[in-house]
Design a protein around this nucleic acid. Structure first.
Lengths: 154, 154
DNA sequence: CCTTTTAGTTCAGTGTACTGAAATATCAGG
DNA sequence: CCTGATATTTCAGTACACTGAACTAAAAGG
């Protein structure tokens, strides 16, 4: 069972990497996208704080996301200095459509009760992962062979 | 439910990134490690073919894995030109111990039948992910804003 | 208004992982 | 042995994402 978890983990990571390579965006870019996907439109500055990057770096992140058609810059009508970054569903949806369809087929094979059970397990697993990720990022400080990486919450 | 999948996905990726940052290894390094973890000890050349990297790059990969204590170089007794790269369980085990413990607790909450159901779902999900990853990496060629990345099977 | 603060982009410099080629060491065959 | 093939490392060059600082633009507050 713990082997299965490892397999799931690597499969998920491999898929994410494939998506990133396909679209020409980095892992950090994808984290930023997930962030605005979850929290809604966000200013570049907020994004910088969230993913622990300098404003200059965020410009690059958003550039790549825009070029890939995954996000768009939107001037804030209330404050014209600010730039709101919004996620664009279309392209990513296209890419994930195959996955979503296949997963839909898969879930359809289970009864509602079973689906409920699986959803429950997934929810708790996500919680565990968040806890363990936090444990890694806060308790120990990273080993610095390489430059400091953006590895905060997502 | 598809939202849940997305959340699980990002949580998994975040954890992996945290581990990588903590140990000073890249995502590619981790893929290489997963590879030798699954297929057993492997020569540097095989590793190069598998992850689609030049031999020179593989030297760097193995260097980092060794430095992190995740792998070890082992001369092939049969052919002293070759270098067998073997995974070392200890360090990674320590890192994942928290996760494994937490996941163990989590699974213990379910009945054996329920565990079986979950395992079944996970297995099928892994299959789906592999298919979809293959679809991305083979059918379409990557968009090349950036240099070609190592994104093959894992 | 005029100054100060804030938001974002631009730009030069840096670190790192990659490629491709040269170098080194070992095997295999006449 | 000696030659040619094979496995890995070393090394120079390159690409890229990041930092930190300068710059532009807009808000805020006397």
């Amino acid at each position: 069972m713990s082997d299965l978890g490892r397999e799931l983990s690597t499969a998920v990571v491999a898929f994410h990497e494939a998506v990133g390579a396909h679209l020409g965006v980095t892992a950090v870019d994808q984290r930023a996208l997930a962030l605005i996907g979850r929290h809604g439109p966000m200013t570049a500055g907020d994004l910088a704080k969230r993913i622990n990057l300098t404003p200059g770096a965020v410009t690059g992140v958003v550039d790549r996301l825009e070029r890939a058609g995954l996000a768009r810059r939107h001037p804030d009508p209330a404050d014209r200095r600010r730039v709101l970054v919004t996620a664009v569903g279309g392209v990513l949806g296209d890419l994930f459509s195959g996955l979503n369809a296949a997963m839909g087929e898969l879930t359809a094979r289970y009864t509602p009760e079973q689906q409920q059970l699986i959803a429950d397990w997934v929810t708790r697993t996500v919680e565990v992962l968040h806890e363990q990720t936090a444990r890694l990022t806060t308790r120990h400080q990273p080993r610095r062979n390489r430059p400091p990486r953006a590895n905060d919450e997502v």
